[in-house]
């Protein structure tokens, strides 16, 4: 079959359909993922972003489970069901809500395989959204991938294309441990080439988005898209940027990043997450340890200011790194 264009939301929806058709043990749990529960005549919405559309109609309400607004209870229920043989895909509507149920992730899901000394598998997928850019404000827009990646025992995936999103969801469903799928809200509608078979995408393998020789730009999710745009702009002024999308923040494909930096001698990490002790700092740290001698100039990061995501559109757009910001940062680094 030939590739076709699909949005990220549609690709994720297809991946869920495939997984649920292939394995009765796959279930989905979350708030409003069917939609309209207990309301006469309400049409099913299939999730706030439509990712779970059509699943209830096909697989029934015993496998697509709408919950009360009780993240601790239903994420914990998902963890317990993974301990006992199901393969739950639990949705936390916005990654900011992780604060509500963090114990069940930090202490229960992440630690169970260690505390059982590997006797217990935990094939749990936590789907959540990340990212600013739509005026949703401080509590529906954060990017907490770095925070989650700092927890031993969690795999953290941040897809930037529809194919990667569907492929990593499939890989997550075959994993023995807990995977957090961070789906960027601004990318749900983005079209991309998708193989209709939705092949799995391995964890810990970066994708080289653009090949280049002057500087390495590392970014995930929406920032990988911005970095690709920036590389196109930089090429017009004869700067050859190599853009690497690690795809999983953890495990991190250190080898690919280090190999690229050894080639280019420069590293810029563009990230929407924390300005301090986040993903960008982690990448700079490991590259500095492993490729210090190859660096022609100090590595840099381009992150938003150390504030919550602003609500006002003018402030939010300045807060977010853009392709123009990336071009300027790269040009500064090339002058050193």
């Amino acid at each position: 079959m030939s590739s076709g264009k699909m949005t990220m939301a549609a690709a994720l929806n297809q991946a869920l359909h495939h997984a649920m058709a292939a394995d009765d043990k796959v279930i989905c749990i979350g708030e409003d993922i069917v939609g309209g529960a207990g309301i006469e005549g309400a049409p099913p919405g299939g999730g706030v972003f439509g990712v779970t559309q059509g699943l209830a109609e096909t697989y029934g309400l015993s496998r697509i489970i709408d919950t009360p607004i009780s993240e601790t209870a239903f994420v914990g229920m998902a963890v317990g069901s993974a301990m006992t043989g199901l393969k739950p895909v639990v949705e936390i509507m916005f990654n900011d809500f992780i604060g509500v149920c963090f114990d069940q992730i930090l202490n229960q899901a992440a630690k169970a395989r260690f505390l059982s000394n590997g006797r217990m598998n935990l094939p749990l997928v936590i789907r959540t959204t990340m990212g600013a850019g739509d005026g949703s404000g401080a509590m529906h827009s954060a990017s907490l991938h770095g925070l989650l990646a700092s927890v031993a025992g969690l795999t953290v995936a941040c897809p930037s294309t529809p194919a990667d999103a569907a492929g990593m969801l499939k890989t997550a469903l075959k994993s023995n441990g807990t995977t957090v799928m961070m789906e960027h809200k601004q990318l749900y509608g983005t079209l991309g080439d998708v193989d209709p078979l939705l092949p799995e995408v391995p964890f810990g393998k970066a994708r080289t988005v653009v090949e280049g020789s002057d500087i390495t730009v590392v970014a995930v999710a929406a920032m990988a898209v911005e970095a690709e745009l920036a590389a196109g702009l930089l090429a017009q002024s004869s700067i050859s940027a190599e853009v690497i999308d690690p795809r999983t923040v953890k495990p991190l494909d250190v080898a690919s990043i280090v190999a690229s930096v050894r080639k280019t001698g420069r590293l810029l990490v563009v990230d929407e997450g924390a300005a301090f002790a986040g993903f960008a700092d982690a990448v700079i740290s490991v590259v500095t340890e492993q490729a210090f001698g190859s660096l022609a100039t100090a590595p840099r990061k381009l992150c938003p200011p150390d504030t919550p995501v602003p609500y006002a559109p003018g402030a939010e757009s300045i807060w977010l790194p853009t392709s123009a910001d990336i071009v300027k940062a790269v040009q500064d680094m090339m002058e050193v």
């Binding site: 209870a73 994420v75 229920m77 317990g80 069901s81 301990m83 006992t84 069940q104 229960q108």
Partner: peptide, 9 residues
């Protein structure tokens, strides 16, 4: 909540 998960299974 973990026991609720076992019950769900």
């Amino acid at each position: 909540p973990l026991a609720a998960g076992a019950a769900l299974t």
